[in-house]
Design a protein around this nucleic acid. Sequence first.
RNA 1: CGGGCUGUGGCGCAGCUUGGUUAGCGCGCUUGACUGGGGGUCAAGAGGUCGCGAGUUCAAAUCUCGCCAGCCCGACCA
Length: 473
Amino acid sequence: MARKSILASQATDFPQWYQDVLAKAELADNGPVRGTMVIRPYGYSIWERMQAELDARIKAAGVPNAYFPLFIPESYLQREAAHVEGFSPELAVVTHGGGKELDEPVVVRPTSETIINAYFSKWIQSYRDLPFLINQWANVVRWELRPRLFLRTTEFLWQEGHTAHATEPEARDFALRILRDVYEDFMVNVLAVPVLVGRKTEGERFSGATTTWTSEAMMRDGKALQMGISHELGQNFARVFNTTFLDESGNEHHVWQTSWGASTRLMGALVMAHGDDAGLRVPPRLAPVQVVVLAVRDGGGAAERAAAIAEELSAAGLRTTLDTRLETSFGRRVVDWELKGVPVRVEVGPRELSQGQAVLVRRDSGTKTPTALAGLEATVTRALDDAQAALLSEALERRVAGTVEVATIEEAEEATRTGFAVLRSSVLEGDGETRLNRAGVSVRLLTRPDGTLPGPGEDGPDADLVAVVARAY
RNA sequence: CGGGCUGUGGCGCAGCUUGGUUAGCGCGCUUGACUGGGGGUCAAGAGGUCGCGAGUUCAAAUCUCGCCAGCCCGACCA
């Protein structure tokens, strides 16, 4: 018997459903200042898992963490023309401090290219110092006109990597290494969200970059969300901050740089890519709680057995929580864990216990299986692996089903009402991209027809590329 | 900044057109009893400057004017 959903229906009101999940799964609330948010403990525990998984991949790429100031002198931003033009409208500017008006206003960082370059220029002297690699976990502020919890908030948490290299090809290789080995790997293998990777068009690239590489995913409603992003900055910042090095022959050169980031937006992606009518579904490799062991009700030593089972699963390395709140009704507790998306529930009640069993319930599919208590750890581990794979393939199938090839701008406008459209990049020439933008559709990325990444110079009317276009968050 | 809409206990809303007993309802919250295999049941309670200000009137949540705040659609965007 289908239980009535306690969430707004996805099909009829996706935005309302999204808000509902954030509130009822206890992920986040709006902050008092428009566009800011409060991340609640459960939401933050998921973010901590994201941080841990991303950080491990960043370190594996040889990048250590560091920290730079929140406040940046306004003049730093103004040095790079495209950069300041891109960010000026969304800067939060502090004009007073210590009860006095400041001589020079300071901006709250919208991103840290400028302040980090101010230090790179001091720290980098020789080719022996290169490549110079830094990552920072921080909060940044961009005064957005239309905020949306997690997806676009005025203040958000992220990691931003900043690197300097001796040559352009080295910088490009590093930007792509991050794109693939950090972001694509994390999205696919941990978040269970399949991503398309490619290059941004000139109109969509980061202010101050020469090339922007992106990873994009389809949400359940067919709209696109930019996940991790990686920029080649060329020598734009090196020139204005005079970040130079001497090569083996004693000649001075500006460094070639990259920057790259992924943010709390991924929390929104998690909800919008995997959520269903019963709430969140967290992939097991990400889940802060992988298994919850529930004592169904008193009797038959259920509570004691549940505790022993939880102990055993924890000892086996599974992230396990015990729920013996017998004073709260069983139905309520089940819905609690469903909303929070915990991948596997082990339900321990007198009825099964008498037969040496428990009920194993998978959140992704909803299937309930009576399972022998003997060897439970192996059964649960297998269920977690299966759930991880199932979420990924489900999302991939949805994207494939929701993607159509089209030949014209008009067809693209129509197709993107429900999903992604793929078309030859030549169709975008002239006013093609502008016409799409006016219809609320944007070019998400460009790739070669076989899906591989375009090389340097593969651009313009002659390049044989395809564009993936969609409505986006 | 343009176009649409909404402000009523913690949350979601009804009441307003046609002014008139004590401003209702659902959820949540408190207490107690009964329950317990899928957001229980029953009973008793707590909680309100009806966004703010002025006006009309014997009388304003309701009508008029002004102001303020928020939401949705668009422009900006990880």
